[in-house]
């Protein structure tokens, strides 16, 4: 099985009067079709790590390779295109565009990639169907529950068939039942479609859904489970 993500001695320091060393040299890799979780306490650096992997931030040092491309060296506009073409990202707080309906939110990345909304509307509805929200396609985010919004965000992250799906504590604001639905959905996507997933979570119970866990503590890998 080939490697999707290769992280080599990744460091991130936030400048300031007292610089914050959020990542102090992290090295690991994620294989194709793997479902990995990054776990750790609050402030351990797990979200910072996911931001670097999702190309939302730029590491201070080290190398990050996704599908053998050294993405840490890409220019901003190249990163934007890379995110659009190859990555899906699910935020903690749903992060939907409030002025768009569920289906419009989902088709937005496809529209950006292919320049047509009509031809991708069907696919967007299909994606909503996958996350069990076909009937709510024309509802705006304010008309959806937290769990439903998060499922719309997942459908949006998947519409361009990304190679890798990143999820940053996607269950943080959800009730137990909605959290379970999301975790099962990720598991299904991983098992049935072979989707590579990297998820940040602080919930120990979530371990049972994933193939591998990387524990982060004080910006360093504390331990990792076998894949």
């Amino acid at each position: 099985m080939s490697i999707d993500i290769e992280v080599k001695n990744l460091k991130k320091t936030y400048p300031g009067r007292v610089p914050t060393h959020a990542l102090k040299g992290v090295t690991f890799d994620i294989k194709e079709a793997e479902y990995g979780a990054i776990m750790g306490k609050s402030g351990s650096g797990k979200s910072t790590l996911l931001h670097q992997l999702g190309l939302l931030d730029t590491p201070t040092e080290g190398a990050l390779l996704i599908n053998d491309i050294e993405v840490s060296k890409l220019k901003d506009h190249e990163k934007t295109l890379f995110r659009l073409q190859r990555l899906g990202y699910v935020f903690q707080e749903y992060a939907l565009i409030l002025e768009l309906t569920a289906v419009e939110n989902v088709l937005l990345p496809a529209f950006a990639l292919n320049g047509s909304q009509r031809s991708y509307k069907e696919r967007a509805i299909e994606m909503l169907d996958k996350v069990g929200l076909k009937e709510r396609a024309d509802h705006r985010p304010c008309e959806l529950s937290g769990g439903e919004q998060q499922r719309v965000a997942i459908a949006r992250a998947l519409i361009n068939n990304p190679k890798i799906l990143f999820a940053d504590e996607p269950m943080a604001n959800l009730d137990t039942s909605s959290s379970k639905q999301i975790l099962e959905l990720f598991q299904k996507l991983n098992k049935e479609l072979g989707q590579t997933i990297v998820m940040v979570t602080h919930e120990p119970d979530d371990q049972k859904y994933v193939d591998r866990v990387i524990w982060i503590k004080d910006g360093l890998i504390e331990k990792r489970s076998a894949s």
Binding site: T80, L84, Q85, Y89, F91, A95, I97, P109, A112, L113
Partner: peptide, 16 residues
């Protein structure tokens, strides 16, 4: 501002 950030995060170009 937040929505602009989200648009960028999902891969919408700054120019767009």
């Amino acid at each position: 501002r937040r929505q602009i950030g989200i648009l960028k995060a999902i891969g919408i170009k700054e120019n767009t």
